[in-house]
Simulated scan of single mutants.
Amino acid sequence: SIVENAIDGIFQSTPEGRYLSVNPALARIYGYASPEELMLAMKNISEQLYVDPKRRNEFIAAIEVDGAVSGFESLIYRKDKTQIWISENARAVRDSTGRLLYYEGTVSDITERKLAQQALELQKVQTERLLLNILPQSIATRLKAGETPIADQFEQVSVLFADLVGFTNFSAQQTPAELVEILNAIFSEFDRLAEKHRLEKIKTIGDAYMVVGGLPVPRLDYDEAIAQMALDMLASIDRLNVKTNQVFQVRIGINIGTVIAGVIGKSKFIYDLWGDTVNVASRMESSGMPGKIQVSATTYECLKDRFAFEERGIIEVKGKGEMLTYWLKGRR
């Protein structure tokens, strides 16, 4: 018969949760040798079949609303207690007075489809996580929406560059694995500090590190956060030296001002910054001294009431001429 030879499972069950009839396909889906074995073993569908015991009541409630269910998906136990996904299409059968007699319907094994969906969802989550490791969340959202290129102007941004002094000579004495291990330790600590101070890491270039405050979401304490990050970076290098018996030093430069930030190009996206503010911050680092934090006069004016500074004086800055700079010493 059609019922006996059907690929999908076919059933009739009582409102109380026992099977009145099942076909061979349903027995096979549930892991039983025959319909008779299934009906004999399954005395309470709610407790024995569904992984979630409340699922049977949800099945009944859905039928009560519309008289039927379509594509009702559930995780169930097979005879050997392994779990599979099924999809049920069912309806309520009533007598002429409207009294419920039984439920009847079909069952499909959708485990492969559900596993494929779960794998796709996991891949989506992993891709999203990877994207957020590369781009700020708000920028990633705009890119996914198709916006390109992305370019925004920010009026109040703090920019920090840091460089490991003498690391080129140090690297010549290390194996590649040792070099990567120590760089990873240093930059991972810097990453932790950036997250702690809610700053945006922009990039690393060799042994240089760039981080900014005040974008992509503007904030009032953008200047204070970057200054504290710089001080914490020096402290973290000191701790690392004690731990590794090394003499690493970091040179840090900070500037504050207006920048353009965004994403350009069509491949290997990176969120980057442009403008004179960025160039000056880079020069503050490159013209600085090991173990010190050099800042521009603009930065000094923003922070002088909250942090202690020492005037360095007028220095010659490549591409900028003479500039008055300061050393950031600590909090007041």
Rank of each mutant, 00 (worst) to 15 (best):
V212Y: 06
L75S: 12
S158P: 04
V65A: 13
Q228A: 14
E58D: 09
A151E: 06
G67E: 05
L115G: 11
I237M: 04
M284Y: 04
I254L: 15
K266F: 15
R113G: 14
P216G: 04
F72T: 06
T141Q: 14
Q246H: 10
L100W: 01
A194K: 06
A68D: 12
Q249N: 12
A61W: 09
L273H: 09
Q173E: 09
N44E: 09
F154V: 03
N133Y: 14
E181F: 09
N245E: 12
I2R: 08
I2N: 07
I293V: 07
N255R: 06
W85A: 05
G262R: 11
I29E: 00
S236Y: 01
D238P: 14
Q12R: 15
T277A: 08
V3W: 08
Q137A: 11
L273Q: 14
D163Q: 14
R91N: 01
V217A: 13
K196L: 11
I205G: 00
Q126L: 08
G206W: 10
W327P: 10
E311P: 09
I186W: 03
V180P: 00
K43M: 04
K201I: 13
E104V: 00
F154D: 01
I264W: 08
Y271G: 01
L199S: 01
E310G: 04
P35M: 04
A227N: 12
K54S: 13
I7F: 06
I254Q: 09
F167P: 03
R332Y: 13
R28F: 09
D238E: 15
E147P: 13
D238W: 11
V69Y: 04
I202P: 07
S282V: 04
L183T: 03
T14G: 05
A151Q: 12
K81M: 05
R198F: 06
N5R: 09
R129D: 13
Q126A: 09
F167H: 01
K203V: 03
D109Y: 15
V212W: 08
Q126K: 13
E128W: 04
Q173S: 05
V263M: 00
A41M: 11
V317C: 03
K266W: 15
E37G: 00
R94Q: 05
K144D: 06
L273M: 06
F72G: 00
Y209V: 00
T14D: 02
A33I: 08
A185G: 11
R129G: 08
T175Y: 05
L193R: 09
Y102I: 07
S171G: 04
A27C: 03
Q126H: 10
I260K: 13
I315C: 04
A145K: 12
D8E: 11
I45C: 08
S171D: 00
I186E: 02
D305W: 12
K144E: 11
P176A: 03
G146A: 02
R331A: 14
N57M: 07
D163G: 07
K196Y: 10
T258P: 12
K54T: 13
T277I: 03
Q48Y: 06
W327F: 12
I270D: 13
V263L: 03
R283K: 06
I256C: 15
D272L: 01
L131W: 02
A185R: 10
A6H: 15
R239H: 07
H197T: 01
P176Q: 04
D95M: 03
L164A: 05
L179Y: 07
T106C: 01
L199V: 07
F72A: 01
T244E: 06
E37C: 08
I315F: 11
K81I: 10
M42N: 12
D8Q: 14
F72C: 02
R331D: 09
